[in-house]
Amino acid sequence: MDRRKAIKTSGFLLGGAAFSAISIAQLASCQSSAATEALSWTPSFLSTDHAQVLSRVADILIPETDTPGALSAGVPEFIDQWIKGNLDESTQQQIKAGFSGFLDQCTSAMGKSFLDCSPEEQLSFLQQAEKAAMDSEEPSILMNMKEQVYETYFTSKVGMEALGYEPIPGEYVACMPLSEVTDFSGMR
């Protein structure tokens, strides 16, 4: 696939206003990943409710399009395992409390559980919560989820391939026109 062409035809260069519209349309047409859907994996740390929240948020952050999204990349189940195997008990408890707080916050803002919201309502709540989190010094489970979802997706095989990852560049080209670049996997 000609990656540059794909980017240009995907429409994101039209400007910020278009982004949300695209995403909402994608979400609306994507009932298979709606809230009521049962998990296709068994959580090892999170409760079923919290795991469903994580799955929905991951799907909203990086949806399936013509390329695989966070769910195809196995992002929520990896994060669930990650919490279990990498975080100490007090942090794990904070995360549990964070998910519960997130659900409470949604219920008071939207009048119903996050898991019962429509995809449009879920997106709208997440955008409000994101704004609030970024204006605040307080730790936020949404910001944690963003970080973990992006990190997990873009270090996954599908995520890295989507960015044109070349394991063996073979050469260093110090200054190259952006139009000729094929690997956007980053410098890490």
Binding site: I7, F12, S23, L61, I62, G69, M134, Y150, G186, R188
Partner: peptide, 23 residues
């Protein structure tokens, strides 16, 4: 910078996969 910048930006609802193809 790479996709890590999206954590600190308002990025919910943005087409991250496509945006990540711009450094």
């Amino acid at each position: 910078s790479n996709w890590r910048r999206f954590v600190r930006e308002l990025s919910v609802g943005q087409p991250i996969k496509e945006l990540a193809q711009e450094p």
